[in-house]
Design a binder for these strands. Structure first.
Lengths: 201, 201
DNA sequence: TGGTCTAGGTGTACGCCGTACACCCACAGA
DNA sequence: TCTGTGGGTGTACGGCGTACACCTAGACCA
């Protein structure tokens, strides 16, 4: 069933999926009630791929590695994060995953309310993706640098930052804008914050 | 032009908008190249509503209040956050807003890289909305409590949390699941984190 | 005054989408 | 042998974004 996710991009339509399976579109409706249910299905398939890993030891590395595992699973299927957004009701596998994360927090000594806040603060990051306002991985550094210079007059700060990123990408030494780094940076920032808040009481 | 955003919900279609304006669908294409451009237009209109407020004083309250102002603007137009997601290229007004935020950070003494990380860590929260995995505002507390009990067997931690929230909502005293509170909580957590990291070097 | 230019509205049409409804067949169990 | 029934089929509807050709009311200038 979820075989369809390899070939099928985000522009996945019932008709396309059907022909992909060598079948007539309406045949799909013998297996799923509607497209939403199908999406729920493939989301569940992806989320079930997340390797939970051991639940022992410190809560922080445990949660950290579990979330990073989720990120790996989601990165394997780039369309998945897009599919999860906008879905109104969580699928069972998502619920199970969330439950496991909450369990780690609770085992680490967090109170119910603290975990509740933490879940909200993590938001979609809990599933390994963060919602950026825009793709910043479009072009080669040279073009990016050109664009940055062009907007230096209207958006000086933005341009300054863009230039720095473009420069870092050209000189291989710099980390440039490394999504994985940014993700872990933000994740650690949040986890540290949770820990500090808990200790503060 | 942006008048269309009042009546038009997320199920906004060129045809619907056209009839709303008492005009034939194709007439719209004399003003915008395609639907994406129209969306960019109304997004810009909403983002331009954000009141920037004064840029003086401490960086933290300044940024905090500016982001909360963005949240107010976005809350006035519930469809806007959905529209901003998935847009590949940022609109000019979004760029201007981001530039202003970066400016506040820089004026507060943050280095270019530090701001860069901060922007990524904030993600969509910078525009006043956070991407939740699912709506948790569906039903009355009683039904919610029922559902929570039902899933206590399979998802104990989740159920525990859901019960707490439902309970808090019933006894008026508790904050329950207050989106505004959660948002500010996470925002402050991040801002505090930025400050701490900067002081640490 | 007449001629041309043009901004904006119109009508028709195409190819896509999700899916309702009626049909039909192969086969399992009685 | 009859009868369900699970799963594939065909047709059709209404909605979508939008390409293309056409028309019209004014603006502008000679």
């Amino acid at each position: 069933m979820a075989l369809a996710d390899e070939a099928g991009l985000d522009g996945l339509s019932m008709r396309r999926l059907a022909t992909e399976l060598g079948v007539v579109p309406m045949a799909l409706y013998k297996h799923v009630a509607n497209k939403d249910e199908l999406l729920d299905g493939i989301i569940d398939a992806v989320v079930s791929e997340i390797e939970l890993g051991p639940a022992e030891g410190d809560w922080k590395p445990a949660i950290r590695s579990r979330i990073l595992a989720a990120r790996q699973a989601l990165l394997r299927h780039p369309w998945a994060s897009g599919a999860i957004e906008g879905r109104r009701n969580p699928t069972p596998a998502v619920l199970a995953y969330m439950d496991s994360i909450i369990g780690l927090f609770r085992a680490g000594g967090f109170g119910v309310d603290e975990v509740h806040h933490a879940i909200h603060a993590l938001g979609s990051r809990i599933l390994g993706f963060s919602q950026e306002l825009f793709d910043d991985t479009p072009a080669d550094p040279d073009a990016q640098e050109k664009a940055a210079h062009a907007m230096a007059a209207t958006f000086p700060w933005l341009a300054e930052m863009a230039l720095r990123v473009a420069h870092d990408e050209k000189t291989v030494v710099g980390s440039g804008c490394d999504d994985q780094f940014e993700f872990e940076y933000a994740l650690d920032l949040l986890l540290d914050g949770f820990e500090r808040l808990r200790q503060a009481g």
